[in-house]
Design a protein around this nucleic acid. Sequence first.
DNA 1: CGGCATCCGGGAAGATACTG
DNA 2: CAGTATCTTCCCGGATGCCG
Lengths: 228, 228
Amino acid sequence: MAGKRWYDDSCGMAQGLNFVGDRWALHVVRELLLGPKRFADLRADLPGISSNVLTQRLTELEERGVLRRRRLPAPASVWVYDLTDWGAELEPIIRQLGHWAARSPHFDRSSPLSCTSAVLSMRTMFRPGQAEGVSVRIGFRLGDLTLDGRILGGEFAIEAVDRLFGPGEDGGPDAVVTAAPEVLAGVIFRGLDLDEVLESGALVLEGDRAAFERYRDCFSLPETAPIG
Amino acid sequence: MAGKRWYDDSCGMAQGLNFVGDRWALHVVRELLLGPKRFADLRADLPGISSNVLTQRLTELEERGVLRRRRLPAPASVWVYDLTDWGAELEPIIRQLGHWAARSPHFDRSSPLSCTSAVLSMRTMFRPGQAEGVSVRIGFRLGDLTLDGRILGGEFAIEAVDRLFGPGEDGGPDAVVTAAPEVLAGVIFRGLDLDEVLESGALVLEGDRAAFERYRDCFSLPETAPIG
DNA sequence: CGGCATCCGGGAAGATACTG
DNA sequence: CAGTATCTTCCCGGATGCCG
């Protein structure tokens, strides 16, 4: 399984680790959760991975049925990697692991954050209890990603879209936010001051600012676990 | 973090892997989910781990707040390893990973299975839909573990206990099962014939056989995912 | 015996250069 | 752009031995 270093253990968890427990494997899955990507995109979004390791992971994950290598139709005619349905079912596990880790006092929030990670963080840290009566729709421009996030009836959904309507436009979001993922995460999860990032231009907000503030206030990090 | 090979990534999942992504780390956590264990027990329950690696994992997991090293009171006065509350919160992740892996066509059910894994499998594969109207209580003797499993009102619970009442006894289980974890898992999850294992002595059943059969029928593996 | 340090061999991961 | 080839680093696994 995992190269030559697999777990000889019928436990489901152990088998799971044989499938996606190799270094970088779950990162690759994470980066594909919002849609297919090319080799170079994956490399760019996984700081620190080297091309040979990425090649090896993609090969193994395809063998194991987690993803598929596909050729886009002409004129693109380019190779992309796409999760299988089964591979996409790893999302709740990835989110739960993130939620668990976020409770650690050793959590490091100073490292870079990929666009996909920022979006997954929203899905993970949404608090229905803070969203009662909130109805808002925000568009995001995060690197190459264009996203549509909606809060309605205590539910939250966000996904990649091809095109974004202008803020206020009919059928469009209340506001559109453009920022680096670290900045967006800072504002939403760690109380980074909105005026400051607007001032500096690190975040650009078009449309209804109050709507975005209502959106922001529907998310929060879990409490740190009481350990040394 | 993870030795010197950590992920420089603020994503929660990546941080989680920095905490428990090292080889064998989640296995150690798994083996502690039903209660504290000694070094030698862990070694015995983790086929293939070497003592130096176990030492290193235990040290790291303690530093990271996942477990604690504790000295039992005299006369035992022996060192044991015990999950912190935060560490124990990994159980749902471990179970979900197992559930996900169980859907793979490449799942290998021929390897050995630890007693803890067998118990966790029951927690994972319980089907409330198959347990409607079922009320049954089974005791288990699995290696060193003594367990009490109850199904009632569509809910399932199983945990380690100090002592087991005899089958049929007042306040005791309907039946008591003694078997190797692989055999028990075979009977419960893969339709291994009960007559056969009783005949061969691989499984010993005291008390109400029909009760155990009702219990068994409340569990099933998920369907294999439709991939190569 | 339980826990931990040490040494060694093999192999996975990392870095970089190169090719179709 | 999408990988391959090569070299290096270092983690993991196994054995041994020390020490309380």
